[in-house]
Design a protein around this nucleic acid. Structure first.
Lengths: 136, 136
DNA sequence: TTGTCTGCAAATGTTTTGCATTTAC
DNA sequence: GTAAATGCAAAACATTTGCAGACAA
């Protein structure tokens, strides 16, 4: 069973066939699907599943903190099931492929106090850009 | 005259009243407007300007590398006129305010070779998140 | 049983496109 | 004069919402 699904069951999340399929589709490493792609894959396993349900479910998973919304730049948001493991993204400027990466060091260290405008800074999101081996 | 407008004229960009107004609206520091906000402000100066022209113009400015698209997370893209000066963003999780910041050090240094998946990494985009003084 | 999830269809918000007209160079 | 920009209206997408019926607990 998928890690995501397992965590959700452990949290007592109300389970339905639709929710299970969405959780299964999202499971794995380097998964960054759009809502529509999630729906397309879900339909293969459960033909009746509706787009609204996929949106509802994704929205709920994001609220629960189990899935992260990633806006790389295209128009549709992408959903990343590895919200629990802190990580950043490496995006290919050629084909758009996304990989999860784990940079070393404290990302907040680069922002000196005088650059913080009085903000309480709690987090940094980094998107590395470059070309993947196939596109280079 | 605005810096942006000046640079565009220097590049021999074909000038029209609509384009001038869009460039003027975008000028300044810490400016991060949506296409719709750009249109609203442009209409004040030039009532006939259409939304399509604003979109066309913004798209062209992005292609020229004079303006950057910033997807903070909401649905509409925001446009940042300071694409030429390398900088990153600090976003308030409360009210959404965006400030431009200039972190110290090489942002690519945090990504070790074994984390690069064979990519040629050329750039890093950082979004710092926190609460601004009013929201804290 | 009961509260909630699901699915449909319609609405909303953002951006793009086709094409006739106007305009900068 | 000519190629390119503009504006309109309509289309294309992405996402949200309202509500009746279905379903998990």
């Amino acid at each position: 069973m998928s890690d995501l699904l397992e965590r959700l069951l452990g949290r007592g999340w109300r389970m339905t066939s639709q929710r299970r399929v969405v959780a299964e589709v999202l499971s794995g490493d380097h998964i960054h699907l759009t809502a529509d792609e999630v729906h397309a894959r879900a339909v293969r396993r459960l033909p009746e599943i509706s787009r609204s349900t996929v949106y509802n479910t994704l929205g709920e998973l994001v609220s629960l903190g189990e899935v992260a919304e990633v806006s790389t730049d295209g128009r549709a948001k992408r959903y990343d099931p590895n919200a629990r493991r802190s990580h950043q993204h490496l995006v290919c400027s050629g084909c758009g492929t996304i990989r999860d990466v784990h940079p070393v060091g404290d990302p907040l260290a680069g922002l000196p106090a005088e650059q913080r405008f009085g903000f309480t800074v709690s987090d940094a999101e980094i998107t590395y850009r470059g070309l993947c081996p196939s596109c280079a």
